[in-house]
Amino acid sequence: MKNQLHRIDLEMFEGPLDLLLFLIKRDELNIYDIPIAQITKDFLEYVDLAKELKLHSAGDFVLMAATLMKIKARMLLPIEANGDDEIEDPRTELMNMLLEYKRYKEATSTFSEMERFERPHYYHVPATWSPQQEDNTAILEDVKLYDIMLTFQYLIKNYEEPATHSVAVEEVTLSEQVGFLNGLLQAKAKLSFADLLEKFESRLVVVVTFLAILEMLRNRQVKVKQSKLFDDLHISRGSTFGN
């Protein structure tokens, strides 16, 4: 029964810092002078639960528990006075983290408020009709890195490695694949990534080729176009191609 209540509680927290802020508020503790022994004890109770419940973020809670115990240990050690150096409170770093997190956490209520306010308004959005697109690959000129990544993930999901029993180690390097793509682009102005996929025998080669494309994109040796998200990637010569 008690666990049931705790479970609900724990899932309310966004992480260990959020939980600490809650404990500080609940017990009216002073954030600059946190009673480490007390808060560590309370915190550990929650962490045990987090582990038990296999919460997604349990690792983050455990890490914080370790930090708290380290601080607690350091506070118990006798302080060695060495010269005029000011002795730093072992809690300072934690306090700064809590304060910094609190600033953003408080800002989220503003965002929430703005979201609530804007929610009922709908933008006038024209139908995505494009007049006389002679080349439909030109629609999305400005392909973002994230789009390319998503597309790659999507394409590779459908890629099946041919069943094979050989165990030979494949050697494929990035520069080899850059060379390979360069060769293809010299012969053909435009390549389709989906067509390329069919040529390859293993996932490793596919991945390395994809990295080669990203590398060439960065050097402006190639341009990548896509007509819509998850669509095939069209690779063509870039401004520095052949240099």
Binding site: G15, P16, L17, D18, S57, G59, Y101, Y104
Partner: peptide, 15 residues
């Protein structure tokens, strides 16, 4: 480092 928790999935949602 500010949130103290892994933020992969919220970044993913926002992207």
């Amino acid at each position: 480092s500010i949130r103290g928790v892994s933020s992969d999935s919220s970044l993913r949602t926002l992207l």
